[in-house]
Design a protein around this nucleic acid. Structure first.
Lengths: 214, 214
DNA sequence: CCTTACGGAGAACAGTTGTTAACTGCATGG
DNA sequence: CCATGCAGTTAACAACTGTTCTCCGTAAGG
């Protein structure tokens, strides 16, 4: 199966990608639940009925967009977490990577932030599933750090969740920061850096509470 | 002006409220940007044209919904923050209040979580404006605590933002926790409690970093 | 009591929506 | 080289959308 790409399959993928791209662009100004099938095909330069050759429905296309968007986010998160250096360096590097990703894939970031709590159930579920995987991955990386010695698995996961949420929230804020005033981005970054710093401090003192873990 | 309510004004407010209620209910399964004017009036039992007597557009209605939803959230946040007792008690009490609010106004919570990053600009802005006020308010309460002695105003605000985001995120998770498995709610609460605990620890050690505040 | 102002209803509009069916052309595999 | 399968098109459908204009009943204010 899938022998050689083939002229046929290649053209199909091309149209499919055109649909995804058109949808993503249209989604900058609205939510997925208001996106129309005809609207998408029109923007993609394709007949309305061609849509059905690729997706069963708009919700289906949305799920495909989740894969695409979080696929591009995956390597970024991985390198963000596994950066070396002391705390302050890691924070700076992480913020650079986030800002870079926002610049490279603004529409993807917007899509995920918007549809994470959006009105289309299957898409919401797909996002939460993927973010769960990210959280687990981040948790794994955190567990390797000597600071995490003696931590329960549940505690590592709650820390990972805190970081993932913060990253997504920061990315969304960076996206909405008006390009008119460049100071806005700086302000968001500095705020996020402080928050990461505070979480880091809480992390290093997590086990010296009265009663220890639990 | 506004002499006595008057039969006339009272009926108008009643219809207006019917529109808001109908919209809020319809929004449980979709986003604001896909909500139709006719859809709302139909659900409210009113002619389509009556809509224009109350709102200029659906976006306008959305902004009104923001006021309503965050008006009901306001007292909850206030009491949450100003709870007395030691750290652990405060966390438990805060989580109770959040869970109580989610049960009392589920549609409001869903609306805010969804439209915070939603596809309708004016609504997004209204939410961010209101959340900014909440953050400032929380910050004010935090500043009064002796633990915050020596904190810069900016640091207090970043902590407040951390708390507000955590509260909203937790509320949203509680909302999506399936009623079929009651353990899900518990799990969400326990996770949120740990996160609040960690942030609290970071807070108490914020100033004993090498270099202190800056 | 009588006029005015206003909340709401009704009908009509041009435009758009999702989905169906029947088609065309051409790359593919035997 | 030819028959098959499939990506994409065209045409048509009933249903629905937001908005305008015109009308109606009645509470409000003099």
């Amino acid at each position: 199966m899938s022998h050689i790409p083939g002229v046929r399959q290649a053209q199909k993928q091309k149209t499919r990608q055109a649909l995804l791209d058109a949808a993503l662009e249209l989604l900058e100004g609205q939510s997925l639940s208001s996106l129309g099938l005809r609207e998408v095909t029109r923007a993609a330069g394709v007949a309305p009925t061609a849509f059905y050759r690729h997706f069963r429905s708009i919700a289906d296309l949305g799920v495909a967009l989740v894969e695409e968007a979080l696929g591009s986010l995956h390597p970024t998160i991985r390198t963000t977490v596994s950066t070396t250096g002391d705390g302050e360096e890691r924070i700076a590097r992480a913020l650079e990577l986030i800002a870079g990703h926002v610049d490279a894939y603004p529409a993807h970031v917007r899509f995920i932030a918007r549809e994470r709590h959006g009105g289309v159930r299957p898409v919401r579920e797909a996002i939460h599933r993927q973010l769960g995987l990210f959280t687990a991955e981040v948790g794994e990386a955190l567990a390797k750090d000597p600071v995490s010695a003696g931590w329960s698995e549940e505690d590592v996961l709650m820390l990972a969740q805190l970081y993932v949420d913060l990253m997504l929230g920061t990315a969304s804020l960076l996206l909405e920061a008006p390009a008119s005033e460049p100071g806005a981005r700086e302000r968001v970054s500095r705020m996020a850096a402080r928050q990461m710093r505070l979480i880091g401090i809480g992390r290093t003192h997590w086990l010296d509470r009265p009663g220890g873990d639990r």
